[in-house]
Design a protein around this nucleic acid. Structure first.
Lengths: 110, 110
DNA sequence: ACATGTACTTCATCTGTCGTTGTACTTAGT
DNA sequence: ACTAAGTACAACGACAGATGAAGTACATGT
C-alpha cells in the first residue's frame, strides 16, 4: 500500500494516461489502476470522481452518457487534445521528478 | 522546476535522509537540496520549517541550539532512532511507488 | 428476502504547501 | 556612513487535493 501523499497530484495523470488508450468510465478505470499495479495502488472513489470534475473544468477530458448500462448509469470520459498535451508535459515532468526523489531519498554523495 | 504536489509528503523524507548523514540546520539543508538536484527542486522555507515541527512532534528528529552563529541564531537538528527507522520504511516505499507511477504514467499494456 | 456488485454523488474535514510579512544580525560594496 | 544582499528563522492565513462517511439506484445470485 502506497501512501497517497506521494501520488498526490498524479492521480490526474494516471487517469489521463488510461483515457489516452481509449474512452472509459470511472469504475472501469479504477479497476484498471488496481490491476496494472497488482493492487499496490487503489484509487479512492472520491479521489477519482473529484479528479474527473477537475479535469473537465480544465478541458482535459469531456464526458458523455453511456448507452450500455449495468446497474447505475455510466458516464464515459474522453481525453481532449489539450488533455493529451498536458499528459505529455506531465510524463516529461515525471522523469525529472523521479531522478530528483531517487537522489534525495537515498542519502548519496555526488 | 518541479510541481510541489508531486513531492508532497516526501519533503520529510528528504530532510531525514540528509540528517541521516549528520546533524545540520535549516538553511544549510535547503541549500543541499538545491545543490543535489542541480536547482531542479528548491524547498520553500515555510514548507521546510513546518516539516521540522512535524518531524519533531513525531519524534523523528530533535533540535538543539547552535553555538556557531553567523547572522541569526541557528537551530540544529539530529535524527533519532525512530527517525532512522521511518526513513528506511519510506525509502522502501519509494521503490514501489516509483514502479507504480512509472507504469501508470506511460500508458503501456502489460 | 438479502447480500453483493456495479456506478456514481454529495459533503465536511484534514493535511501539506505556499505567499506574505516580519525579525535580527553580519558582511560587502560604493 | 549608508545600503543591499546574505544568513537564519517564525507566525499567519489561504488553498487544493485527498479522504471518510453516507447515500442513491439498479441488477444479479442464492
Amino acid at each position: 500500500m502506497i501512501s497517497s501523499d506521494v501520488i498526490r497530484g498524479y492521480n490526474d495523470t494516471f487517469l489521463l494516461s488510461l483515457l489516452n488508450q481509449g474512452d472509459s468510465y470511472g469504475y472501469e478505470l479504477s479497476r484498471q489502476i488496481k490491476e496494472k499495479t497488482d493492487g499496490d495502488y487503489i484509487i479512492k472513489e472520491t479521489t477519482m470522481y473529484s479528479a474527473f470534475t477537475r479535469l473537465s473544468k480544465k478541458g482535459y477530458i469531456i464526458s458523455y452518457p453511456g448507452t450500455v448500462t449495468q446497474g447505475k448509469k455510466r458516464t464515459y470520459y474522453s481525453i481532449t487534445l489539450e488533455g493529451k498535451m498536458h499528459l505529455k508535459e506531465k510524463q516529461e515532468e515525471w522523469h525529472i521528478t523521479r531522478e530528483v526523489v531517487d537522489h534525495l531519498v537515498k542519502g548519496e554523495d555526488k
